[in-house]
Design a binder for these strands. Structure first.
Lengths: 192, 192, 192, 192
DNA sequence: AATGAATGAGATTTCATTCAT
DNA sequence: GATGAATGAAATCTCATTCAT
């Protein structure tokens, strides 16, 4: 048996939980499945997490934070709004592909209210990021002078659609890069 | 005892099940919830449906068929591809709003395989419908000469994104009509 | 629909019940099965029988009485104890083959007590019949002067074993006639 | 909470299940009865057995194997076919008395097919054992030169009848030893 | 007399959580 | 820290019985 540090054990469980939740959803996953996936005992999970709900919430929280940080780090280096928006979209999709579709699609578990605050906060934050990019683009005369609020909603909607397609209809995906170019083409001022 | 005809009871249960599944997902919904929602006893459900899985599958089947028929009926009367595509998008969203979001979002139930055939068939059918519209539009010179397959995927993706937003982030929806105009604007040939 | 007289309906249900009980046992049979087998509605059964238990009890009673009468009628015409015993054994097996294995084998249902009085009465009665035959045979010097009580038990045991084999291991039955000759050979006095 | 080793618990449940099945049959026994008899919670049973059916099947399997081994061990030490056959019959009845009647009598459960393979295999094996004894007895000139197949069927039938009587009509049993002597007397060559 | 929709009690089964070891 | 046997509550499902029609 591999002895692990407390921190390693915790992370190990979170990672295992994610793999299981992704595959079976919250209600469809059992603590036993997670324990098996993590290679520990059922009781062991409860040494690190109060219960199943908390485990899931912490997992969601961790992923959303990780994603936010990744986005922030990437955008810090980019000046051009076009590049920034493209990067945002590509990163979103890439991250979703890697491990996060489940966060978006599981929102129905526990009657919509499950993790609702965390998610609301996250969406609000992302909205601000996108709005910032568009605002800058319009100011610079690169993007058409559109309704920023509305454009942001469209962009988040398209990304969501792409991510959902990953789950629901993976045989009919359009390319992530095309997805970003499509959105950009709608925003670019005619003079570009 | 509230006596109903067999057919009424059946439909009553399906409708109740839909409301419940929509709210809690498949695993998160219980037969007791459905029974309460339908105003009958739990055992009563089993007079009409073999088990929970069959109930859900029949429900999905019914909705998808109903939607397909609605789409077919609406498009039969429309000649102009622009109008047809707009109608398709608006109907999709309207129908989803009314009762169908859950179908799209529940795909993780039972390890992704739940109702997979029914859904695949449905998506295939809808893809053909959209492709038909675009093909006609291009032939008539109304739409730009784009990659039909790819354009179809984008359209389905955007609709999906809109529908998912209904569930996940209903405070930040963009307007259904705007959604359709956005898509159309991308397809219209510059000469329009 | 075939209208039936009340008496026909009753008998029709009993016969259906027997076929179903025989196949699935008491607990394994449902009123719905019986109704289907009888070609009537579930509720219809309750017009003729108070409940499942009474139906089964009446059925057992009817069969055991029918069998007793058949035996009595057959034996009345027979003078020779050898013939009588042979006939008794052959009739028992024939009757069991036709429809009655279930009566013997279902005694474990409802914790042994199910129909216990009826059966006890029946066994007592049959024991008397067999004892009568043997007594007569001994008196006439045809049978060896054995312990009548004991011989009767053996005979009933062998018949039971044969009947049980019908159910449990039908590929390895010995012939009914051989069964009777076996028993007789044990009883016949050496001088025969 | 009564803590036991995993192995103890398993055996404890099997033993409890046997007592309950014997009394009420398969369909008539409930998991709650078994749990109560075993002194654990209902859910606890499912830690060791997938479901009721598997529990029953494993139980049958265990008993039949145990019996087979007991027979094999006993017969290994016995040279004389008379002693061997007597021992076989006495052991069969003794074992049945102790805990096994239910195996023979429950064959109607689940429409006759329940555990059919296990039982068929068992009967086949026992048939071979008996045939072996008789063959040896005939070869040695101790038994009459009878039809071995047929004699075996008779023997198995008589044992079955005795066992069934244990269940159905325990007030009218003939003695186990008498049962074996009866069978032997039929087989012994007149010169003995 | 007859139906079959509906019920309610109880069966089997699952699983998050606890706790003796 | 770690285990995994055990529990108890709740889920799915079954079915004898009732009762409006």
């Amino acid at each position: 048996m591999n002895r692990r540090s407390s921190k390693d054990s915790r992370q190990n469980i979170i990672d295992a939980a994610q793999r299981v939740f992704l595959l079976h959803g919250y209600e469809g996953s059992t603590m036993r499945m997670i324990a098996e996936q993590a290679g520990i005992s059922v009781g062991g999970i409860y040494l690190y997490f109060k219960n199943k709900e908390e485990l899931c919430l912490l997992l969601i929280d961790e992923r959303l934070k990780e994603f936010s940080e990744k986005i922030d780090a990437a955008l810090k280096k980019i000046e051009d709004p076009i590049d920034a928006l493209r990067e945002y979209i590509l990163l979103s999709i890439e991250y979703a592909k890697k491990h996060n579709e489940f966060i978006i699609t599981q929102s129905r578990e526990k009657g919509f209210t499950f993790g609702i605050d965390i998610k609301r906060e996250f969406f609000k934050r992302q909205k601000e990021v996108i709005k910032g990019i568009i605002f800058k683009g319009i100011n610079k005369g690169i993007f058409v002078n559109c309704n920023i609020e509305e454009a942001t909603r469209v962009i988040m909607g398209v990304i969501r659609g792409f991510v959902l397609s990953l789950v629901v209809d993976p045989d009919n995906l359009f390319d992530a890069r095309q997805c970003s170019e499509l959105i950009l083409s709608g925003l670019l001022s005619r003079s570009n």
